[in-house]
Design a protein around this nucleic acid. Sequence first.
DNA 1: TACTATATATAAGT
DNA 2: ACTTATATATAGTA
Lengths: 197, 197
Amino acid sequence: MEPAKQRKLSQGRKKINIERIENTGNRQVTFSKRRQGLFKKAGELTTLCGGEIAVITFSPGDKAYSFGNPSVEHVVESLLYPDNYTSPMQVRVGEDGLRRKEQQELDEFQRQLEAEKRRTKRSEQMKSGNKFWWEMPIESINNMGMEELEKMRGALKELKLNVDKKAEEKMMKESTSLKISLPDPTIRNIDDRASGE
Amino acid sequence: MEPAKQRKLSQGRKKINIERIENTGNRQVTFSKRRQGLFKKAGELTTLCGGEIAVITFSPGDKAYSFGNPSVEHVVESLLYPDNYTSPMQVRVGEDGLRRKEQQELDEFQRQLEAEKRRTKRSEQMKSGNKFWWEMPIESINNMGMEELEKMRGALKELKLNVDKKAEEKMMKESTSLKISLPDPTIRNIDDRASGE
DNA sequence: TACTATATATAAGT
DNA sequence: ACTTATATATAGTA
């Protein structure tokens, strides 16, 4: 009744050495599978142990994948800005219930932005240089839609005012004991070339 | 022939549900084991497939662990600044030779700043909602040192100019065919815990 | 920490 | 994408 069984359906998993897989197709498949496995484990780890985690990888094809709990950004910033420094991205909005809806729109938009940034292919070398969050890549501004641009514009204006104000306050307060001078000239130079004000 | 076997040396691995481990000691042990496993897998992935990877986790005790190839910083930056982006502070200082030196001082200083921040231990908070970084509240501005403040001020000004400019460009261009909406359906690879590609 | 029985991940093959 | 045999990871225990 039974048809002759073909020898073995599979030889099962074989042992492999941990070294670069030369076959391109194979490499991609393996990356895909293992990335999934890795993300799954990462998720399990946080669920089981309650820590935070971020995993970021670039595929051989240079595409970015990431997994994060609570979010990649959160974890990365926790690493970059330890201490009680309140992370700009994570600032509390709490008591002002009014903003919640707006908030969600923004979050959604942020996801888009991030995604868009990631979508682009990155180039080989990253010159040294350190970037701060408030040095937003011009590129991502280019990618913004009108609506978002306007929102940002308004917020930025307000923010700038606050910063200017604080800067001056501190300047007054610390001017006596301040030794460094991250001097105005430097900054003005930059202003100059852009604004011509 | 055999002496009575002591029950079993081990019942072996038991199945567990993926949910928070309440027992503290257990949780720590599990974190430790699984973190090791995760990092190992991460390493294998890059070796096998040649991509890049960064894994960052905070233990339940809030200690930071990370694994990266070639390095965490490299990968994180690749994610944040995909293209051959040059930060605003470094942009086009070229034509005016005079500014180069200042530029370098600034960069160096910034590096130090960042290093210093990293040294500190982070605290636990940041529970409630997020806002966009460009809607940074005053409280975090208050926490900034003078140097950082000044630097931010410069960058911010430039950023604002860029945004203003872009906003106006777009305004012109899109005023006829207003169809803002969030672009692009094709961003699958991010925040996509489960599915594969 | 070290051990082992078992749960899970996954290399090949289809 | 799906399957299967096997390699690996790991929960509970000593």
